[in-house]
């Protein structure tokens, strides 16, 4: 049968072998030592994960972890939610200065102007007078907005 499937069959045989050896691993070792180790690990698992359930129902631990293939060494940094190198300081509910919004709006307006002017400047000769007048209208509209913001003292940072 294996020959029909080629190399995939060999991989399958390897996988089955690995699974069976993992299952039979505890029986191949000296049993009392293994049992004490398992008991200690199980106790530790219960105390850390389910402290309220130690009195009632002992839950089944995850199998690979129980078989020690996956190590279980928790610490506070590993259990915390954030994973950056820096520790979190203060709260996430921080107020920003509302003047940032004015800045953002003016920035977007001028940014759009650049976006329109740049392709117009690239294709200047082909676009001719019509493109030039169009860009003048755009700059005029934005300039009125800029004057309005200036008049309203948005540009002053107090």
């Amino acid at each position: 049968m294996l020959a029909e499937y080629g190399d995939i069959g060999l991989l399958l045989a390897l996988a089955i072998f690995f699974a069976v050896t993992t299952l039979l691993l505890p029986f191949s070792l000296s049993l009392p030592a293994r049992l004490t180790i398992y008991f200690r690990r199980f106790q530790h698992y219960l105390e850390t994960r389910y402290p309220f359930m130690t009195k009632f129902v002992p839950p089944l631990p995850k199998f690979p972890r129980f078989m020690q293939v996956v190590p279980y060494k928790p610490n506070p940094a590993k259990n915390s939610t954030f994973e950056c190198g820096m520790e979190t300081i203060g709260q996430a509910w921080v107020r920003f200065n509302f003047r940032y919004y004015f800045y953002a709006l003016i920035f977007i307006a001028l940014d759009v102007m650049v976006v329109f002017i740049y392709p117009w400047a690239v294709g200047l000769k082909g676009l001719g007078l019509f493109g030039f007048i169009g860009i003048l209208v755009l700059i005029f509209v934005l300039f009125i907005g800029y004057l309005y913001a200036w008049r309203k003292k948005v540009l002053e940072w107090k």
Partner: peptide, 13 residues
């Protein structure tokens, strides 16, 4: 402390 924290957060082994 940051390097220690990154090391602590790495998965075993």
């Amino acid at each position: 402390p940051q390097i220690k924290r990154i090391y602590d957060q790495m998965a075993e082994p």
